[in-house]
Each structure stands twice: as structure tokens, then as C-alpha cells.
Amino acid sequence: MPLFEACDLRCERDERVLFEGLSFTLAPGEIVQILGPNGAGKTTLLRAVAGLSTRVSGEMYWNGAALPGSRWEFLRETLYLGHDAAVKPGLTPFENLRWHAGLWGRTTSIGIEGALGAVGLARHRDTPAQHLSAGQRRRIALARLLLSPARFWILDEPFTAIDLEGVSQVESLVAAHAAAGGVVLLTTHHRLSLDCRFRQVALESGALA
């Protein structure tokens, strides 16, 4: 049975249909990359799946139960990494991650220190994020992938501002997450090179309403 299912999604904006009739499923272990040019509605789709936007019509199911009816269960099991990294410039990487983990009050066993070490920020644990580079700030957000026990990852352009080594690290994280039975929905303009199979869903754009 698929973990997540989207049926007949449709999004219209400024009297233009961004996409319609979009359906896809995510069974445990599956990775889906959403493709489309700028303005095709990728971010809107991801925000709708994450429960942040109601601009998309259609039906979505989590574990067989319709959303947003089982919204609570769903939010608990999802991690949304948006365009904006939700990293406070005035706080250190450690404090930022402690806050993110504190929102749900649970982390994986790796711990905040371990996650910071894994993304290469151990030396900058106590440096306010405003003194770090854009890529390093993005790495703080990516450390959340290691910390969160959520099964469903929704990643909007996770590779922005990250160096090549970081990109391959995130790719291996995504593959490992899928191998462990998790599901990943992501957008990126970067050519994914994963060790495992993944599907691509293209957003058709352009039709006038």
C-alpha cells in the first residue's frame, strides 16, 4: 500500500492552470523528483503536500486516510525543508537545531552534536549563523534531515548554495532514507545521481483556464 497518495491535483493561479490531473503515489522506499521550469508550480505543490497551502485542489491520502482529516498524524511523520531554511542568523547552529528538534520534542539517536559533525559544522557549533556562509547556513537546515525521525521528507531545492561534496552527501542521505523505508518528494534543477531508483514527475505548464 502506498504511504502517500495524491489524486487529481490541480492548481490555478492568475487564471492560468499551473498543473491539473496530477496524480502520484509514494510507496515505502520510493523517491519522486518533481520536474518543471521556473514558475511551473513546484514550490506550490510541495507546500500543498506539506499542508501549508490550500491553493491546490484534489485529494491526498496518508497511510490510506484522507488529508487533512488525519493531518496530525501526517505532520508528525513529515519533514518539510522549504525554500527558506528557517535558520535564525542570531543563533548558533546548535541553538537553531535545538529549536527545530524542540518543536516536536524528539530526535533520532544521532543527537544535535552528531548531526552537526556529520554536515561538517562541528567547528562552528557556537558561531552565530550570521557569520557563516550561505552554504554553511544551508547545511544547518540539512542537519535536520539527520535529526528528524519523520518518514516523509519534502525537500524544496535542497541543493541550493551547497558545494559538490555537500550535494553528494545529501544525495546519499536521501538514498539511505529511502533504503530504510522512508519516502522522499523533492524538487531540484540539479541532475540527481542516486545509487537507487527514483521516479520523475513533470509538471505540465502553460494552458489557459
Binding site: 518539510y80 522549504g82 528557517a86 516536536w104
Partner: peptide, 10 residues
Amino acid sequence: DGSLEQIVRS
């Protein structure tokens, strides 16, 4: 900075 999205989902 996107924190509000995380707060709303909390």
C-alpha cells in the same frame, strides 16, 4: 526566514 512555516506545522 521560513520559521513560520515550521511553526505552523508544529
